[in-house]
Amino acid sequence: MDLTADMTNQPFPTQLFGDDAIDTAEEKAKPSSRQTVGDPFVENPRMICRDVYVYYAEKCAINNVSIDVGRNEVLAMIGPSGCGKSTFLRCLNRMNDTVGTCRVEGDIRLDDMNIYDPSVDVVPLRASVGMVFQKPNPFPKSIFDNVAYGPKIHGLVSNKTELAEIVETSLTKAGLWNEVKDRLHEPGTGLSGGQQQRLCIARAIAVSPEVILMDEPCSALDPIATAKVEELIAELREQFSIVIVTHAMQQAARVSQRTAYFHLGDLIEVGPTDRIFTNPRHQLTEDYITGRFG
């Protein structure tokens, strides 16, 4: 707990169960319990979320969620459809701003900067918190232009050589360079689904973000493409913090270090991935990962 002592202005949730407490108790939290089980906080976090509520008009979509995003980790968010995991993900780079009726309360910080502060501009924010979407959505432009777009609009390069370098490194990091280096000026929409998704990842990392948000990035891909993207995620972790929303629990198990389970807008349980999948401490989590519902 002391790791968050520097954030004295944060009203902490008071009734968090410590890992040990549950371990010793050897009993599961009841399904009716809505307290977050497990430790949602990490040392030296990249992003900090405290008491986040999200409303669509009057409907509460996220109810009092507090969690950290660590450095160089992959945080997986799982849960049944409609549980709010995507909504929560989209709070992290304020993509929910585009929905007129959406209202976000609470505190979300990126490196100590409150991203919902009125003085914060979303443009640089989204440059540092990149996003990859469920359906591959390359721009209907050439492969080169897709990757070059971000650096161009943010003015990250001063000449064409630099731009070409960025494009090459980004595509290389995304594991796509060898496949497309001969056809950089062909439309990005002409690639296969998996390639498109990796192109979108290349596009996101081209602006050197700190965090990459991935919203079910493999749900539209076949198993081989999925495997490639997962491999890529594992590599990217060395440089970026990654938050991934996924429906596939095996995927969460494969790529993530920590897993958060959401249920109807509540953050039910957070913990190291292997622990969550082997020894869930909340009845709802267990029901979900054992396939009893969801």
Binding site: R126, N137, F139
Partner: peptide, 18 residues
């Protein structure tokens, strides 16, 4: 125009007019 294109642009930090 599909919303995914708008999201892609906004997601990378384009301003609305961009």
């Amino acid at each position: 125009v599909p919303p995914s294109i708008r999201e892609a642009a906004l997601g990378i930090g384009a301003s609305k007019i961009q």
